[in-house]
Amino acid sequence: MPFTLVLGGARSGKSAFAQASAEALAAETGGRLVMIATAQAFDSEMAERIARHRQDRGPAWTTLEAPLDLAAALDGLGTGDVVVVDCLTLWLSNLMLDGRDAAAAASGLVEAVGRFEGTLWLVSNEVGFGIVPDNALARRFRDEAGRLHQALAQAADAATLFVAGLTLRLK
């Protein structure tokens, strides 16, 4: 089934695009709207942000929290599901902070996306446009994100880049 990779910077419009696209498709097909959220509330500001996002989506959305095992979350969904994963860079951060093998998890995600039978939008922050980070962890994160995005872009039916609320269709 179709899947779209949605890339962009913070507050670029990528999440709003993915959610609106999913809502339109679900209204047309009657599919179940599912948000797979990867954020973890490590502080009160993030807890408030997560609650606000959930409230803004409204009751039409089923929310699954998958901060670490994203492939298993996708594997548990059905054929008619209309799914947004938001976001891959938070997921990648969670993996790295938990000491997990990010490359193996990324490979598992690409495989799960290939098995998924619903419609999918994967949202991620493009972090490769900036300067080379000054520390090893940040450089490793940037490199892992770049490799993940390349693998998913190759597998995607479509890829879109968001900058300042404007879209550039990449594929």
Rank of each mutant, 00 (worst) to 15 (best):
residue 99 G to Y: 03
residue 99 G to D: 02
residue 100 R to P: 06
residue 100 R to D: 10
residue 101 D to H: 12
residue 101 D to N: 14
residue 102 A to P: 11
residue 102 A to R: 09
residue 102 A to L: 07
residue 102 A to M: 09
residue 103 A to T: 15
residue 104 A to W: 07
residue 104 A to D: 13
residue 104 A to S: 14
residue 104 A to Q: 14
residue 105 A to N: 13
residue 105 A to T: 07
residue 105 A to W: 07
residue 106 A to Y: 08
residue 106 A to C: 14
residue 106 A to V: 15
residue 107 S to L: 15
residue 107 S to G: 15
residue 107 S to W: 10
residue 107 S to E: 15
residue 109 L to S: 08
residue 109 L to E: 09
residue 111 E to G: 12
residue 111 E to F: 06
residue 112 A to P: 10
residue 112 A to V: 09
residue 112 A to N: 00
residue 113 V to A: 13
residue 113 V to G: 05
residue 113 V to M: 06
residue 113 V to H: 09
residue 113 V to F: 10
residue 113 V to K: 04
residue 114 G to V: 09
residue 114 G to Q: 08
residue 114 G to E: 10
residue 115 R to W: 03
residue 117 E to H: 09
residue 117 E to Q: 15
residue 118 G to V: 07
residue 118 G to Y: 04
residue 118 G to R: 06
residue 119 T to V: 11
residue 119 T to H: 13
residue 119 T to N: 12
residue 119 T to W: 12
residue 120 L to Q: 03
residue 120 L to F: 02
residue 120 L to P: 02
residue 121 W to P: 01
residue 121 W to M: 01
residue 121 W to N: 03
residue 121 W to Q: 01
residue 122 L to C: 04
residue 123 V to L: 03
residue 123 V to G: 01
residue 123 V to N: 00
residue 123 V to E: 00
residue 123 V to P: 02
residue 123 V to S: 01
residue 124 S to P: 08
residue 124 S to F: 05
residue 124 S to I: 04
residue 124 S to Q: 00
residue 124 S to L: 05
residue 125 N to A: 10
residue 125 N to I: 00
residue 125 N to D: 09
residue 125 N to H: 02
residue 125 N to Q: 07
residue 126 E to A: 05
residue 126 E to K: 01
residue 127 V to G: 04
residue 127 V to P: 08
residue 128 G to A: 06
residue 128 G to L: 06
residue 128 G to D: 07
residue 128 G to W: 02
residue 129 F to N: 09
residue 129 F to A: 10
residue 129 F to E: 11
residue 129 F to D: 03
residue 129 F to C: 08
residue 129 F to L: 14
residue 130 G to Q: 03
residue 130 G to A: 12
residue 130 G to T: 01
residue 130 G to V: 00
residue 130 G to M: 07
residue 131 I to Y: 08
residue 131 I to V: 15
residue 131 I to C: 09
residue 131 I to A: 14
residue 131 I to T: 11
